[in-house]
Amino acid sequence: MVFWIFVALLVVVLLWVVSLYNRLVRARNEVRNAWSQIDVQLKRRWDLIPNLVETVKGYMRHERETLEAVTKARQQAVAISGDVAARAQAENILSQSLRSLFAVAENYPELKANQNFLALQEELTSTENKIAFARQYYNDSVYRLNNLIQMFPSNIIAKQFGFKPEVYFELEAPQERQRPEVRF
């Protein structure tokens, strides 16, 4: 009798461990899936930029520095691979350089009438949005995975099977957190 109770208990514990393990795996897969989404959008942005620079060049003769900043930021972002934090920083610089390019473009009415430029602007705006939304989804899934890894009782199983907490993808620029300076 005691033996069978012991066996039943063992089976229950085993099933429980399996379900916790599966939850961890699901959470980790979601993080990976979310990361690949970000990756797709970042690559798409790299592909769009040379086109944009080419289109804009003829109109913005006096903005060589802005254009060079974009090209350089893109090269640097492409060169970095692996580390999430380093990539986030490089992509962040690229985002900013693009933003200043579009801000400067406001001064060129001819450019704003160019169909090709408008189409590219819509594409890049959308890609920026997708990066932001994919990042949000990625961070949500990282939050869930890390919670599972740190909280009892799933932390025991996470430790046993070597699940590691993931890093959040922060895109906010450090400058954005500061108050804007106003100079006269």
């Binding site: 959308s126 949005n129 939304f133 994919a134 989804y137």
Partner: peptide
Amino acid sequence: VVEEMSVASG
């Protein structure tokens, strides 16, 4: 916009 929102909701 449809693509953006489906990315946002995974």
